[in-house]
Nucleic acid binder design. Structure first.
Lengths: 204, 204, 204, 204
DNA sequence: GATGAATGAGGTTTCATTCAT
DNA sequence: AATGAATGAAACCTCATTCAT
């Protein structure tokens, strides 16, 4: 009786539904009923898997990040050049498609909820840190390979991460002044700024 | 007779209280009772000045921005050099003191609430636009005065604004990795990047 | 300083407004604010003239009846023949014009409110009795004059009054089945039934 | 499994309670709490079955009529003579016992509420029409059987219905002048008026 | 006499959570 | 494992009434 997998599957089904609701309506407007309906189960069942709404919310926010990362795993191994890897990685985070936009919505909800909730603060710290580390790692790689300029890799990572977050917010909120094209432009400009002019091109 | 100031005063008293609550607990956790208590009036009175909680919230979010701007008005006229003005202006927005931090909290709440509320979206568009315009104006001034590098001033403004927003979020959420000092560092670095090297250096 | 008249006038202005609101929205939906607005005064003033809302309501209901009666005073002296007087009197009560319809609305509200309010019950008893007496009186006159059939005048009056009330209700509620023409038809039929065939016609 | 009856039963339990409250206190004084208490459930449960108080009220008013009719169904098949059927049917509606009185109270509340509420107006039109139809049917039967006088059956039905309504109102409001005996008297008199003199009299 | 800002009790409604089935 | 009926605390909002001016 390999039931554990059923449970895992059920949990994921609920978490996915929760994220969709959070993305559409926001954390505070999320109702257990909404999640249940979307997952096509009863509210009782939701509570069978998640003791309280709070538990459900936290698990959903964490799942949002994990799933988001998993979707980008391949990018990190696809490119040998760190600069290209950075560009591809950042590009993949610009809210172009619905999935990415939804993930950003949940992400933004997480930040703001964390402002008033120590537990979420810790969750945020953990997953945010993880993300920053990945960027830092790429930058270190790039510096080692001579394609990214020297300087404190953490400072550079912070710059990059901040820029992406800031741009995304303006984009998500729907500013007509911040189109996806503009975002791409700003990001590319930033990457150029922290890149070492490519040798071959310089030579030729 | 001649009591127009009382109403204005009362409204401001309520709005100030609302912003404090929003900053402390978040928009969704804000209770009309909380605001009333903080303003030392009855809930009935709150509703006497603001028909619905929604109206109150919107007015508070708008007031947060307006008041925030008013507090910085002097900065814009204090410096003749646009670069210094930009630096001072940006510095004044880094969440150092309690007032500024509170304003940022409310600001962040506004963004996320706007994700699901067309009215707030419009409000956000309006006040965000105003802010972006101010930065753009300073940059234009700087370019005219030869202290800021050439390039599309709007693109530069977007870069600056995004960076500040992104940094602030990380800071607000309480990341141990994003101290105020680090923020200052990143900001200064950015301003340096978009500044024309100063005369003395140019001479030598 | 003949102020009393001012007060009387003010009271009537308020009562008239109250009746209009009651007619339009019903007793329970009537707000002191509505009355004040319609009378173009403040709520404070309404309370200056009527201690409580309850007092105001009762006074309004009573006023509705009194004013309604006053408007028909002339009819009672206009006709020498009791049968004609009865016909004219009844006709004047059919809800044809807006004023009469409004009076009926208030009248109906009074009945239903009286179901649960002893004070209104008494008020109703008083003014209803007054109305019944008037009809009875006309019938007695008619019997004395030989134009109305014999029989307990009170029983006949009750029949007439009931019929009018019943018809009016159906009409007021807006039944498409109960037009004013139909009401008139039923009433005329009833009056014919209780009338003595006129001598001259019988002779000729 | 197979719990459909529970829901129906629960709904009826609530509707019955609502009608009782409406009869006792009136539509506007009815509180959801009152209904809940009387039905021995929580207010939450009331709202589980009826979204809003308005829905509850409407359903209750409709139920009042339906249940009222159901209680009289047997009368319509008991008598072969249409005149007797009419007499029995009308008699059964005179507010003698508590149940009938309560039903009339709710009935009266429906009328007056309908004055200001289009939905109730429609509801009233529907159920009132149904009632009028039943009376009309009996009269048609009586005319076919030669026990009721000729004439437009709808006109006669309107006369009958109006009389009953009018009498009931006076009775309900508690007029000392309108006892049940008097009502009976007036009704019998009316039925006599619209009846064909019985056979023996016709023969002699 | 008149005002209208201020009150606060009380009502409807929502929704996370429980628990018998 | 799953359900969904039932709960009840808590929130927003209304509005008659008061009272300083």
């Amino acid at each position: 009786m390999a039931r554990p997998s059923v449970e895992t599957q059920r949990r994921e089904q609920i978490l996915r539904a929760a994220c969709e609701v959070i993305s559409d309506k926001g954390i505070n407007a999320m109702r257990v009923t909404d999640v249940a309906k979307l997952a096509k189960i009863s509210t009782g069942s939701v509570h069978y898997y998640f003791e309280t709404k709070r538990d459900l919310t936290q698990a959903a926010l964490e799942w949002n990040f994990t799933a988001s990362l998993a979707r980008r795993e391949s990018i990190l191994t696809r490119y040998t050049n760190a600069r290209d890897r950075l560009q591809a990685f950042i590009d993949s985070y610009l809210p172009r498609d619905d999935d990415t936009t939804a993930a950003w919505h949940v992400w933004a909800e997480t930040w703001v909820a964390a402002l008033h909730d120590p537990d979420l603060r810790e969750l945020n710290e953990r997953i945010y840190g993880q993300w920053r580390s990945m960027i830092t790692e790429i930058i270190r790689d790039g510096q080692a390979g001579g394609v990214i300029i020297d300087g404190d890799p953490i400072l550079i990572a912070n710059t990059v991460v901040s820029m992406i977050d800031g741009l995304s917010i303006q984009s998500l909120v729907g500013s007509r002044h911040m189109t996806w094209a503009r975002m791409h432009e700003v990001c590319t400009h930033l990457i150029d700024t922290i890149s070492v002019p490519s040798g071959r091109e310089a030579i030729s």
